[in-house]
């Protein structure tokens, strides 16, 4: 699995496909967060911005290989494992970017009444919840479910929006816990666990669907 993660990540990094989603994320955080703002609310905004970014990143990981290269890798390492590794690597890079943003927001924001470590913990949990929910959206909006690029991007955008506003979405719960809470940053454990479950279910569905849909 390490070799697969390394291969997918190398493809992502060397092809500069990482640049566009990272710029989008930087722009979202820069617009939504001002230095000196209360930390919990800023962490919530940074986490919310990660939903479309993570969805996009996961979609890139699923589609960045030419078909023949994917065939060669599938034979060498297993079709299903290669697919799972692409999902894991995509979500992993999104979590990494979100964690960096959470650290930066905590360091520059105003800690009115909350301790830094407690806020950071809550921020990292919300980041993970949003990255995994976004990753689930990206998984469902890409091959093997949606193959036409136009529909895929439309599904990606609408799905990300829905993940942020729909009641019951782990991303919405995680963000609400930070933004709505009047200063006290409660760590959104439940939302994080729910997002993990959601990501696992969509990943399994995506792996299974390949045999029937592609």
């Amino acid at each position: 699995m390490t070799a697969l993660l390394r291969y997918h990540s190398a493809l992502f990094l060397r092809s500069q496909r990482w640049l566009a989603p990272l710029l989008l994320y930087a722009a979202l955080v820069a617009v939504g967060v001002r230095p000196g703002d209360p930390v919990p609310g800023s962490l919530g905004i940074a986490a919310a911005g990660l939903v479309p970014v993570s969805a996009w990143t996961v979609r890139i990981f699923l589609t960045q290989e030419p078909a023949a290269a994917r065939a060669v890798v599938a034979a060498a390492a297993g079709r299903s494992r290669a697919h799972l590794a692409a999902l894991l690597a995509g979500a992993g890079w999104a979590v990494l970017a979100g964690a960096a943003a959470a650290c930066a927001v905590t360091a520059t924001g105003g800690l009115a009444g909350t301790s830094g470590p407690a806020a950071l913990l809550a921020g990292l949990l919300a980041t993970t919840a949003c990255a995994l929910t976004g990753g689930a959206v990206g998984t469902l909006a890409a091959r093997p479910f949606v193959r036409a690029p136009g529909w895929s991007v439309a599904a990606l955008l609408l799905g990300s929006l829905a993940a942020l506003v729909t009641t019951g979405s782990p991303a919405k719960h995680a963000v609400t816990a930070l933004v709505a809470d009047g200063g006290g940053a409660r760590p959104p454990w439940a939302a994080c666990a729910a997002a993990l479950l959601l990501a696992a279910v969509t990943a399994t569905a995506s792996r299974r669907a390949g045999a029937r849909l592609e």
Binding site: A10, L11, R14, S15, A67, A69, A71, V73, A74, A75
Partner: peptide
């Protein structure tokens, strides 16, 4: 191992780098 009829050169690796990954 599988060899396709046409192998895409559209990968951002050197020949050796790609083979090491594989």
């Amino acid at each position: 191992a599988y060899v396709p009829e046409r192998f895409p050169p559209a990968l951002p690796f050197t020949a050796l780098g790609h083979l090491v990954h594989l």
